[in-house]
Nucleic acid binder design. Structure first.
Length: 410
RNA sequence: GCAGGCGUGGCCGAGCGGUUAAAGGCAGCAGACUGUAAAUCUGCCGGCAUAUUGCCUACGGUGGUUCGAACCCAUCCGCCUGCACCA
Protein backbone atom coordinates (compact mmCIF):
# COMPACT_ATOMS: atom_id res chain seq x y z
CA UNK A 1 0.00 0.00 0.00
CA UNK A 2 2.68 2.50 0.99
CA UNK A 3 4.44 1.04 -2.00
CA UNK A 4 1.65 2.11 -4.31
CA UNK A 5 1.42 5.56 -2.74
CA UNK A 6 5.12 5.88 -3.32
CA UNK A 7 4.64 4.93 -6.95
CA UNK A 8 1.80 7.38 -7.29
CA UNK A 9 3.94 10.17 -5.93
CA UNK A 10 6.67 9.33 -8.35
CA UNK A 11 4.19 9.33 -11.21
CA UNK A 12 2.58 12.59 -10.15
CA UNK A 13 5.73 14.52 -9.44
CA UNK A 14 7.56 13.56 -12.62
CA UNK A 15 8.82 16.76 -14.19
CA UNK A 16 7.66 18.93 -11.29
CA UNK A 17 9.83 21.72 -9.97
CA UNK A 18 8.16 22.47 -6.63
CA UNK A 19 5.90 20.41 -4.48
CA UNK A 20 5.10 22.54 -1.44
CA UNK A 21 5.06 21.22 1.19
CA UNK A 22 6.71 18.06 0.05
CA UNK A 23 5.13 15.65 2.51
CA UNK A 24 1.59 16.99 2.25
CA UNK A 25 0.94 15.32 -1.07
CA UNK A 26 1.70 11.95 0.46
CA UNK A 27 -0.68 12.60 3.36
CA UNK A 28 -3.45 13.71 1.08
CA UNK A 29 -3.02 10.74 -1.23
CA UNK A 30 -2.92 8.42 1.75
CA UNK A 31 -6.10 9.81 3.22
CA UNK A 32 -7.83 9.85 -0.14
CA UNK A 33 -6.98 6.21 -0.57
CA UNK A 34 -8.17 5.25 2.90
CA UNK A 35 -11.43 7.13 2.74
CA UNK A 36 -12.06 6.52 -0.92
CA UNK A 37 -12.49 10.24 -1.55
CA UNK A 38 -10.89 11.79 -4.59
CA UNK A 39 -8.71 14.87 -4.25
CA UNK A 40 -9.66 18.12 -5.93
CA UNK A 41 -7.06 19.44 -8.34
CA UNK A 42 -7.36 22.95 -9.69
CA UNK A 43 -5.68 24.68 -12.59
CA UNK A 44 -6.59 28.14 -13.79
CA UNK A 45 -6.63 29.19 -17.44
CA UNK A 46 -6.85 32.52 -19.16
CA UNK A 47 -10.30 33.10 -20.65
CA UNK A 48 -9.16 35.18 -23.59
CA UNK A 49 -6.49 33.01 -25.16
CA UNK A 50 -8.08 29.69 -25.92
CA UNK A 51 -5.47 28.67 -28.48
CA UNK A 52 -3.61 26.03 -26.59
CA UNK A 53 -0.09 25.04 -27.47
CA UNK A 54 2.27 22.39 -26.21
CA UNK A 55 3.40 24.65 -23.38
CA UNK A 56 -0.09 24.42 -21.92
CA UNK A 57 -0.17 20.70 -22.33
CA UNK A 58 2.62 20.28 -19.80
CA UNK A 59 0.12 21.14 -17.13
CA UNK A 60 -2.87 19.57 -18.81
CA UNK A 61 -0.93 16.35 -18.99
CA UNK A 62 -0.26 16.57 -15.29
CA UNK A 63 -3.97 17.08 -14.73
CA UNK A 64 -4.52 13.91 -16.66
CA UNK A 65 -2.15 12.05 -14.39
CA UNK A 66 -4.29 12.97 -11.42
CA UNK A 67 -7.37 12.06 -13.36
CA UNK A 68 -5.93 8.68 -14.18
CA UNK A 69 -5.60 8.01 -10.47
CA UNK A 70 -9.25 8.83 -9.96
CA UNK A 71 -9.02 12.38 -8.70
CA UNK A 72 -11.29 15.27 -9.51
CA UNK A 73 -9.83 17.82 -11.88
CA UNK A 74 -11.18 21.35 -12.13
CA UNK A 75 -10.36 23.23 -15.29
CA UNK A 76 -11.00 26.72 -14.07
CA UNK A 77 -11.49 29.45 -16.62
CA UNK A 78 -10.42 32.69 -15.01
CA UNK A 79 -12.98 34.93 -16.58
CA UNK A 80 -12.99 37.16 -13.52
CA UNK A 81 -9.24 37.26 -12.94
CA UNK A 82 -8.97 37.88 -16.67
CA UNK A 83 -10.35 41.33 -16.01
CA UNK A 84 -7.30 42.12 -13.97
CA UNK A 85 -5.00 40.97 -16.69
CA UNK A 86 -2.06 38.71 -16.30
CA UNK A 87 0.25 40.63 -14.00
CA UNK A 88 3.43 40.26 -15.96
CA UNK A 89 4.24 43.88 -16.46
CA UNK A 90 1.83 44.56 -19.26
CA UNK A 91 -0.45 46.08 -16.73
CA UNK A 92 -3.51 46.74 -18.75
CA UNK A 93 -6.86 45.84 -17.36
CA UNK A 94 -8.60 43.85 -19.99
CA UNK A 95 -12.00 44.56 -21.35
CA UNK A 96 -14.72 42.43 -19.88
CA UNK A 97 -15.59 39.58 -22.16
CA UNK A 98 -19.21 39.21 -23.03
CA UNK A 99 -20.99 36.06 -21.87
CA UNK A 100 -21.09 34.95 -25.51
CA UNK A 101 -17.36 35.40 -25.93
CA UNK A 102 -16.73 33.48 -22.75
CA UNK A 103 -18.94 30.66 -23.91
CA UNK A 104 -17.22 30.57 -27.30
CA UNK A 105 -13.81 30.49 -25.70
CA UNK A 106 -14.90 27.84 -23.26
CA UNK A 107 -16.16 25.69 -26.11
CA UNK A 108 -12.82 26.14 -27.88
CA UNK A 109 -11.06 25.08 -24.70
CA UNK A 110 -13.22 22.01 -24.36
CA UNK A 111 -12.56 20.99 -27.93
CA UNK A 112 -8.82 21.15 -27.28
CA UNK A 113 -8.41 19.87 -23.75
CA UNK A 114 -10.50 16.80 -24.26
CA UNK A 115 -7.86 15.52 -26.60
CA UNK A 116 -5.97 14.92 -23.37
CA UNK A 117 -8.46 14.98 -20.54
CA UNK A 118 -11.39 12.74 -19.85
CA UNK A 119 -14.55 14.75 -20.57
CA UNK A 120 -16.56 12.64 -18.19
CA UNK A 121 -14.63 13.53 -15.09
CA UNK A 122 -13.33 17.00 -15.90
CA UNK A 123 -15.12 19.88 -14.24
CA UNK A 124 -15.01 23.06 -16.27
CA UNK A 125 -15.82 26.07 -14.14
CA UNK A 126 -15.63 29.86 -14.18
CA UNK A 127 -14.35 31.92 -11.30
CA UNK A 128 -16.67 34.83 -12.00
CA UNK A 129 -19.31 32.59 -10.45
CA UNK A 130 -18.05 33.43 -6.98
CA UNK A 131 -15.62 36.30 -7.48
CA UNK A 132 -18.19 38.35 -9.34
CA UNK A 133 -20.51 38.09 -6.38
CA UNK A 134 -18.08 39.34 -3.76
CA UNK A 135 -19.13 42.66 -2.26
CA UNK A 136 -16.75 45.55 -1.80
CA UNK A 137 -16.73 44.84 1.91
CA UNK A 138 -15.76 41.25 1.28
CA UNK A 139 -12.96 42.34 -0.98
CA UNK A 140 -11.65 44.63 1.73
CA UNK A 141 -11.78 41.81 4.24
CA UNK A 142 -9.91 39.61 1.80
CA UNK A 143 -7.29 42.25 1.11
CA UNK A 144 -6.75 42.71 4.83
CA UNK A 145 -5.39 39.19 5.06
CA UNK A 146 -2.23 39.98 3.13
CA UNK A 147 0.39 42.64 3.68
CA UNK A 148 2.11 44.72 1.04
CA UNK A 149 5.43 43.23 2.08
CA UNK A 150 4.05 39.77 1.43
CA UNK A 151 2.87 40.88 -1.97
CA UNK A 152 6.26 42.31 -2.78
CA UNK A 153 7.78 38.91 -2.13
CA UNK A 154 6.41 37.92 -5.48
CA UNK A 155 9.41 37.93 -7.74
CA UNK A 156 7.69 39.69 -10.57
CA UNK A 157 6.46 42.47 -8.29
CA UNK A 158 9.77 42.84 -6.54
CA UNK A 159 11.85 43.06 -9.70
CA UNK A 160 9.47 45.55 -11.18
CA UNK A 161 9.48 47.58 -8.01
CA UNK A 162 13.26 47.60 -7.91
CA UNK A 163 13.53 48.38 -11.59
CA UNK A 164 11.16 51.29 -11.10
CA UNK A 165 8.64 49.74 -13.42
CA UNK A 166 4.98 50.40 -12.76
CA UNK A 167 2.90 48.11 -10.61
CA UNK A 168 -0.74 48.99 -10.69
CA UNK A 169 -2.66 48.52 -7.47
CA UNK A 170 -5.22 46.21 -8.99
CA UNK A 171 -2.48 43.75 -9.88
CA UNK A 172 -2.28 42.86 -6.21
CA UNK A 173 -5.83 41.64 -6.48
CA UNK A 174 -4.83 38.95 -8.93
CA UNK A 175 -3.05 36.60 -6.53
CA UNK A 176 -5.73 37.32 -4.00
CA UNK A 177 -8.52 36.37 -6.35
CA UNK A 178 -6.74 33.27 -7.55
CA UNK A 179 -6.13 32.25 -3.96
CA UNK A 180 -9.76 32.77 -3.12
CA UNK A 181 -10.67 30.33 -5.89
CA UNK A 182 -8.86 27.67 -3.91
CA UNK A 183 -10.82 28.59 -0.80
CA UNK A 184 -14.12 28.26 -2.60
CA UNK A 185 -13.20 25.02 -4.31
CA UNK A 186 -11.49 23.61 -1.19
CA UNK A 187 -8.63 22.50 -3.38
CA UNK A 188 -6.24 19.78 -2.35
CA UNK A 189 -3.73 20.57 -5.04
CA UNK A 190 -3.22 23.48 -7.36
CA UNK A 191 -0.99 23.12 -10.39
CA UNK A 192 0.74 25.87 -12.33
CA UNK A 193 3.89 26.96 -14.08
CA UNK A 194 6.86 27.93 -11.96
CA UNK A 195 5.84 31.55 -12.48
CA UNK A 196 2.68 30.74 -10.56
CA UNK A 197 4.36 29.59 -7.37
CA UNK A 198 3.61 32.77 -5.51
CA UNK A 199 -0.05 32.70 -6.46
CA UNK A 200 -0.30 29.05 -5.48
CA UNK A 201 1.27 29.76 -2.12
CA UNK A 202 -1.11 32.65 -1.65
CA UNK A 203 -3.82 30.05 -1.98
CA UNK A 204 -2.32 28.15 0.92
CA UNK A 205 -2.15 31.30 2.99
CA UNK A 206 -5.72 32.26 2.33
CA UNK A 207 -7.02 28.76 2.93
CA UNK A 208 -5.37 28.73 6.34
CA UNK A 209 -6.94 32.08 7.06
CA UNK A 210 -10.30 30.55 6.26
CA UNK A 211 -9.72 27.57 8.50
CA UNK A 212 -9.18 25.12 5.65
CA UNK A 213 -6.43 22.61 5.15
CA UNK A 214 -4.06 24.33 2.78
CA UNK A 215 -3.64 23.01 -0.73
CA UNK A 216 -0.45 21.52 -2.06
CA UNK A 217 1.27 23.77 -4.56
CA UNK A 218 2.82 21.94 -7.47
CA UNK A 219 4.70 23.72 -10.22
CA UNK A 220 5.95 22.58 -13.58
CA UNK A 221 8.68 24.14 -15.67
CA UNK A 222 7.83 26.63 -18.35
CA UNK A 223 8.52 24.97 -21.64
CA UNK A 224 10.90 26.78 -23.93
CA UNK A 225 9.57 27.36 -27.41
CA UNK A 226 11.09 26.29 -30.71
CA UNK A 227 13.78 28.96 -30.47
CA UNK A 228 15.03 27.26 -27.34
CA UNK A 229 15.30 30.57 -25.56
CA UNK A 230 11.97 32.15 -24.74
CA UNK A 231 9.11 30.31 -23.18
CA UNK A 232 6.64 28.96 -25.63
CA UNK A 233 4.04 31.54 -26.39
CA UNK A 234 1.76 32.50 -29.17
CA UNK A 235 2.90 36.09 -29.32
CA UNK A 236 6.51 35.06 -29.82
CA UNK A 237 5.58 32.71 -32.60
CA UNK A 238 7.73 29.93 -31.21
CA UNK A 239 4.91 27.55 -30.43
CA UNK A 240 3.36 24.33 -31.58
CA UNK A 241 -0.39 24.63 -31.37
CA UNK A 242 -2.46 21.66 -30.32
CA UNK A 243 -4.43 22.21 -33.47
CA UNK A 244 -1.49 22.64 -35.83
CA UNK A 245 -1.92 20.34 -38.82
CA UNK A 246 0.13 17.11 -38.68
CA UNK A 247 2.89 18.05 -41.11
CA UNK A 248 3.38 21.39 -39.49
CA UNK A 249 3.46 19.89 -36.03
CA UNK A 250 5.94 17.25 -37.05
CA UNK A 251 8.25 19.72 -38.75
CA UNK A 252 8.13 22.18 -35.91
CA UNK A 253 9.05 19.46 -33.45
CA UNK A 254 11.96 18.42 -35.63
CA UNK A 255 13.27 21.97 -35.43
CA UNK A 256 13.68 21.67 -31.69
CA UNK A 257 17.36 21.51 -30.86
CA UNK A 258 18.85 18.19 -29.86
CA UNK A 259 19.46 19.54 -26.37
CA UNK A 260 15.98 20.84 -25.79
CA UNK A 261 14.44 17.66 -27.11
CA UNK A 262 14.99 15.92 -23.79
CA UNK A 263 12.91 18.46 -21.96
CA UNK A 264 10.15 17.92 -24.48
CA UNK A 265 10.36 14.20 -23.89
CA UNK A 266 10.11 14.71 -20.17
CA UNK A 267 7.28 17.19 -20.13
CA UNK A 268 5.26 16.29 -23.19
CA UNK A 269 5.19 12.53 -23.05
CA UNK A 270 4.39 9.94 -20.44
CA UNK A 271 7.74 8.22 -20.75
CA UNK A 272 9.28 7.74 -17.35
CA UNK A 273 12.30 9.72 -16.34
CA UNK A 274 14.38 6.51 -16.39
CA UNK A 275 13.31 5.67 -19.93
CA UNK A 276 14.31 9.10 -21.07
CA UNK A 277 17.66 8.91 -19.32
CA UNK A 278 18.29 5.64 -21.07
CA UNK A 279 17.49 7.12 -24.46
CA UNK A 280 19.77 10.01 -23.69
CA UNK A 281 22.57 7.67 -22.78
CA UNK A 282 22.00 5.71 -25.99
CA UNK A 283 22.36 8.89 -27.99
CA UNK A 284 25.38 10.15 -26.09
CA UNK A 285 27.16 6.86 -26.56
CA UNK A 286 26.33 6.66 -30.22
CA UNK A 287 23.93 3.74 -30.06
CA UNK A 288 21.06 5.81 -31.36
CA UNK A 289 20.88 8.73 -33.70
CA UNK A 290 19.45 11.93 -32.21
CA UNK A 291 17.38 12.53 -35.32
CA UNK A 292 15.71 9.16 -34.90
CA UNK A 293 14.92 9.88 -31.29
CA UNK A 294 13.52 13.24 -32.26
CA UNK A 295 11.40 11.65 -34.94
CA UNK A 296 9.99 9.33 -32.30
CA UNK A 297 9.09 12.35 -30.23
CA UNK A 298 7.47 14.16 -33.13
CA UNK A 299 5.58 11.08 -34.19
CA UNK A 300 4.24 10.32 -30.76
CA UNK A 301 2.98 13.86 -30.31
CA UNK A 302 1.37 14.07 -33.73
CA UNK A 303 -0.20 10.73 -33.01
CA UNK A 304 -1.62 11.94 -29.76
CA UNK A 305 -3.37 14.88 -31.36
CA UNK A 306 -4.11 13.61 -34.85
CA UNK A 307 -3.98 9.84 -34.73
CA UNK A 308 -1.53 7.20 -35.90
CA UNK A 309 -2.23 7.52 -39.64
CA UNK A 310 -1.62 11.23 -39.67
CA UNK A 311 1.57 10.75 -37.69
CA UNK A 312 2.90 8.20 -40.11
CA UNK A 313 2.17 10.27 -43.17
CA UNK A 314 3.66 13.37 -41.53
CA UNK A 315 6.84 11.48 -40.88
CA UNK A 316 6.90 10.24 -44.47
CA UNK A 317 6.38 13.72 -45.77
CA UNK A 318 9.13 15.10 -43.59
CA UNK A 319 11.57 12.48 -44.80
CA UNK A 320 10.64 13.15 -48.41
CA UNK A 321 10.91 16.92 -48.24
CA UNK A 322 13.79 17.51 -45.88
CA UNK A 323 15.93 14.41 -45.96
CA UNK A 324 15.17 13.52 -49.55
CA UNK A 325 15.02 17.10 -50.83
CA UNK A 326 11.94 16.28 -52.81
CA UNK A 327 8.86 18.34 -53.37
CA UNK A 328 6.10 18.10 -50.80
CA UNK A 329 3.06 16.06 -51.68
CA UNK A 330 0.82 19.06 -51.72
CA UNK A 331 1.84 22.37 -53.20
CA UNK A 332 -0.43 25.34 -52.88
CA UNK A 333 -1.61 26.98 -56.08
CA UNK A 334 -1.41 30.74 -56.27
CA UNK A 335 -2.76 32.99 -58.96
CA UNK A 336 -1.34 36.42 -59.61
CA UNK A 337 -2.08 39.05 -62.20
CA UNK A 338 0.12 41.00 -64.54
CA UNK A 339 -0.66 43.98 -66.74
CA UNK A 340 2.54 43.78 -68.68
CA UNK A 341 3.91 41.03 -70.91
CA UNK A 342 6.90 40.53 -68.67
CA UNK A 343 7.33 40.67 -64.96
CA UNK A 344 10.19 40.96 -62.56
CA UNK A 345 10.54 37.73 -60.66
CA UNK A 346 10.90 39.68 -57.44
CA UNK A 347 7.46 41.18 -58.01
CA UNK A 348 6.07 37.76 -58.67
CA UNK A 349 7.38 36.57 -55.32
CA UNK A 350 5.76 39.45 -53.52
CA UNK A 351 2.44 39.06 -55.26
CA UNK A 352 2.43 35.34 -54.63
CA UNK A 353 3.03 35.95 -50.94
CA UNK A 354 6.42 34.24 -51.00
CA UNK A 355 8.22 37.41 -49.89
CA UNK A 356 6.94 40.35 -47.88
CA UNK A 357 8.64 43.09 -49.85
CA UNK A 358 10.45 43.64 -53.08
CA UNK A 359 13.66 44.24 -51.18
CA UNK A 360 13.31 40.95 -49.39
CA UNK A 361 12.56 39.13 -52.62
CA UNK A 362 15.72 40.50 -54.22
CA UNK A 363 17.71 39.62 -51.17
CA UNK A 364 16.43 36.08 -51.23
CA UNK A 365 17.30 35.75 -54.89
CA UNK A 366 20.80 37.08 -54.56
CA UNK A 367 21.38 34.75 -51.64
CA UNK A 368 20.45 31.81 -53.79
CA UNK A 369 17.28 31.03 -51.94
CA UNK A 370 14.94 31.08 -54.89
CA UNK A 371 14.31 28.39 -57.45
CA UNK A 372 11.96 28.54 -60.41
CA UNK A 373 10.97 25.19 -61.90
CA UNK A 374 13.91 23.68 -60.07
CA UNK A 375 16.45 26.10 -61.51
CA UNK A 376 18.29 28.58 -59.34
CA UNK A 377 17.27 32.19 -59.83
CA UNK A 378 20.15 34.16 -58.47
CA UNK A 379 19.91 37.28 -60.57
CA UNK A 380 17.78 39.84 -58.78
CA UNK A 381 16.88 41.42 -62.10
CA UNK A 382 15.46 38.22 -63.48
CA UNK A 383 12.46 38.78 -65.65
CA UNK A 384 9.89 36.22 -66.54
CA UNK A 385 7.34 36.46 -69.28
CA UNK A 386 3.80 36.71 -68.14
CA UNK A 387 1.93 34.31 -70.33
CA UNK A 388 -1.60 33.68 -69.29
CA UNK A 389 -2.10 30.20 -68.03
CA UNK A 390 1.61 29.65 -67.56
CA UNK A 391 2.44 27.95 -64.31
CA UNK A 392 5.71 28.24 -62.46
CA UNK A 393 6.94 26.17 -59.59
CA UNK A 394 8.60 28.61 -57.25
CA UNK A 395 10.56 27.62 -54.17
CA UNK A 396 11.87 30.03 -51.61
CA UNK A 397 14.13 28.40 -49.10
CA UNK A 398 13.07 24.92 -48.11
CA UNK A 399 9.68 25.63 -46.76
CA UNK A 400 8.03 28.25 -48.93
CA UNK A 401 6.81 26.73 -52.13
CA UNK A 402 3.98 27.44 -54.52
CA UNK A 403 2.76 26.77 -58.00
CA UNK A 404 2.19 30.22 -59.37
CA UNK A 405 0.10 30.92 -62.42
CA UNK A 406 -0.04 34.31 -64.01
CA UNK A 407 -3.20 35.81 -65.36
CA UNK A 408 -2.80 38.58 -67.87
CA UNK A 409 -4.97 41.63 -67.42
CA UNK A 410 -5.24 44.63 -69.68
C1' G B 1 1.91 70.43 -7.02
C1' C B 2 7.53 70.52 -6.63
C1' A B 3 12.28 68.12 -7.69
C1' G B 4 14.97 64.45 -10.25
C1' G B 5 15.30 60.32 -13.79
C1' C B 6 13.69 57.89 -18.23
C1' G B 7 11.27 57.05 -23.46
C1' U B 8 16.25 54.10 -29.50
C1' G B 9 14.60 49.09 -34.69
C1' G B 10 10.22 42.53 -33.28
C1' C B 11 12.69 42.40 -28.11
C1' C B 12 16.94 43.72 -24.92
C1' G B 13 20.49 47.42 -25.24
C1' A B 14 24.83 51.02 -27.00
C1' G B 15 25.16 55.76 -29.03
C1' C B 16 24.82 61.79 -26.59
C1' G B 17 26.12 67.19 -33.03
C1' G B 18 28.46 64.79 -38.87
C1' U B 19 32.05 58.68 -40.66
C1' U B 20 24.30 56.42 -37.91
C1' A B 21 19.43 52.73 -41.40
C1' A B 22 21.78 53.53 -36.13
C1' A B 23 27.27 49.03 -32.09
C1' G B 24 26.34 44.43 -29.57
C1' G B 25 23.07 40.46 -28.05
C1' C B 26 18.40 37.68 -28.80
C1' A B 27 14.71 36.32 -32.24
C1' G B 28 13.93 35.87 -37.71
C1' C B 29 15.55 34.70 -42.99
C1' A B 30 18.97 32.55 -46.74
C1' G B 31 23.26 29.67 -48.00
C1' A B 32 27.14 26.00 -46.94
C1' C B 33 27.76 21.65 -44.41
C1' U B 34 24.93 17.79 -42.47
C1' G B 35 22.17 13.74 -39.15
C1' U B 36 16.62 17.24 -39.01
C1' A B 37 13.08 22.92 -40.00
C1' A B 38 19.49 19.98 -34.77
C1' A B 39 24.51 21.94 -34.04
C1' U B 40 28.33 24.80 -36.44
C1' C B 41 30.00 28.39 -40.01
C1' U B 42 28.90 32.46 -43.60
C1' G B 43 25.74 36.20 -45.33
C1' C B 44 21.28 39.03 -44.74
C1' C B 45 18.06 41.35 -41.48
C1' G B 46 13.09 49.52 -42.54
C1' G B 47 10.84 50.61 -47.30
C1' C B 48 10.81 52.18 -52.43
C1' A B 49 13.31 52.22 -57.09
C1' U B 50 14.98 46.78 -63.39
C1' A B 51 19.03 48.94 -58.13
C1' U B 52 26.71 49.07 -56.16
C1' U B 53 27.65 55.16 -54.44
C1' G B 54 19.53 57.29 -55.54
C1' C B 55 15.26 58.53 -52.69
C1' C B 56 11.91 58.14 -48.54
C1' U B 57 10.70 56.80 -43.51
C1' A B 58 12.77 55.94 -38.51
C1' C B 59 15.44 56.92 -32.36
C1' G B 60 7.72 59.11 -27.74
C1' G B 61 4.81 63.87 -30.36
C1' U B 62 5.43 68.91 -32.09
C1' G B 63 8.30 73.16 -32.96
C1' G B 64 13.20 75.37 -32.85
C1' U B 65 18.95 76.08 -32.94
C1' U B 66 22.56 74.43 -36.67
C1' C B 67 25.52 73.78 -43.11
C1' G B 68 24.10 69.20 -40.39
C1' A B 69 20.28 66.36 -34.61
C1' A B 70 18.63 60.03 -31.99
C1' C B 71 22.13 63.33 -29.78
C1' C B 72 21.44 70.72 -28.13
C1' C B 73 16.88 74.01 -26.75
C1' A B 74 11.46 74.66 -25.94
C1' U B 75 6.95 72.47 -25.33
C1' C B 76 3.53 68.45 -25.10
C1' C B 77 2.57 63.17 -24.03
C1' G B 78 3.76 58.70 -21.32
C1' C B 79 6.43 56.06 -17.42
C1' C B 80 9.43 55.85 -12.78
C1' U B 81 11.35 57.72 -7.98
C1' G B 82 11.38 61.12 -3.89
C1' C B 83 9.02 64.99 -1.33
C1' A B 84 4.69 67.70 -0.47
C1' C B 85 -0.68 67.78 -0.32
C1' C B 86 -5.05 65.03 1.05
C1' A B 87 -6.86 61.08 4.30
Amino acid sequence: MTETIQQQIQFLTKGCVDVVPSDALRKKLQRSWEKGEPLTIKVGFDPSAPDLHLGHTVIIRKMRHFQQLGHRVVFLIGDFTGLIGDPTGKNTTRPQLTPEEIETNAATYRRQIFKLLDPETTVVDFNSKWLGRLSSAEWIRLAAKVTVAQMLERDDFRTRYEAQKPIALHEFLYPLAQAYDSVVLKCDVELGGTDQLFNLLMGRHLMKEHGLEPQVAMTLPLLEGLDGVEKMSKSLGNYVAIEDPPNEMFGKLMSVSDDLMWKYWLLLTDRTAEDIEKMKADVNEGRRHPMEVKKDLARSLVEEFHGADAAESAEGEFGRVFSGRKLPAEIPEVEITSETPTMLLSKVLVQAGLAVSNSEARRLMSQGGVKVDGEGAGDPKMIISAISGQSLLIQVGKRRIARVSIVKTD
